[in-house]
């Protein structure tokens, strides 16, 4: 564990908590893509299966349980409790166009052709594009509530911090994983446009308005 990875995990945890609080406090999931949340739930379920088979550390196990539980709670709030506030019309990204290529790629490019490894690889590829429906929704509505942009900033920062973690681990432990690094770079690049808008607008107190 290093400071970059810890900061990344905490940023990830913060993002999930911000989202849950936003939906719970405003009793609305307007502006949030349910499809992205479904993809994140799939990411956690396919990646954290080893929760029951390998024990790495208490921290590792607790965080996995928290992520799976929080994503389940978010889906429940979005699709059951506050279903009426879910923006079906704008949340129209075809997630099969993300799922199928990730499955195919995971079968072709992986470290080991075993079920656990394929699922982990699929989860890594899927996570890199899981935010697309959310970014698509923001671009369609043309704006995002400031709490939603804080959520996106924390979520985008998490993988950016992981990139620093991988640089550190390569230098300090000569440990690297090209699949995770490649997907992490793609994932972080997808946020760059948003990061620019967040820093130039939201931090100045303006609303996040995408140029029409």
């Amino acid at each position: 564990m290093n400071i970059f990875r810890l900061a990344g995990d905490l940023s990830h945890l913060l993002a999930i908590i911000i989202l849950l609080l936003k939906i719970w406090k405003t009793r609305s999931c307007a502006g949030i893509s349910g499809k992205s949340q479904v993809l994140f739930a799939i990411v956690y379920l396919t990646r954290y299966l080893d929760l029951f088979t390998t024990y790495i550390s208490l921290y590792n196990s607790i965080m996995k349980i928290v992520f799976i539980a929080a994503s389940g709670a978010t889906l429940y709030l979005m699709y059951v409790k506050f279903k009426a506030t879910y923006d079906h019309n704008h949340d129209s990204f075809r997630i099969e166009f993300l799922l199928i290529p990730c499955v195919i790629l995971a079968l072709i490019i992986n470290h080991d052709f075993t079920v656990m490894e394929i699922l982990w690889t699929f989860s890594i590829y899927l996570e890199s594009v899981a935010i697309l429906p959310q970014l698509f929704l923001v671009s369609k509505t043309g704006e995002a509530e400031s709490i939603t942009s804080h959520y996106l900033f924390a979520l985008g920062s998490y993988r950016a911090l992981y990139l620093l973690n991988w640089i550190y681990r390569y230098m300090a432990e000569s440990h690297y994983d090209l699949i995770a690094i490649f997907a992490g770079v793609v994932q972080t690049i997808l946020y760059c446009d948003f990061f620019y808008l967040y820093i130039t607008k939201v931090l100045k107190g303006k609303k996040l308005q995408l140029p029409a």
Binding site: I56, N60, K64, D112, W120, Y162, Y176, D177, I179
Partner: peptide, 10 residues
């Protein structure tokens, strides 16, 4: 052959 990821990351 790159190092096998020890999957200690979240």
């Amino acid at each position: 052959q790159q190092t096998k990821t020890d999957k200690d990351e979240l």
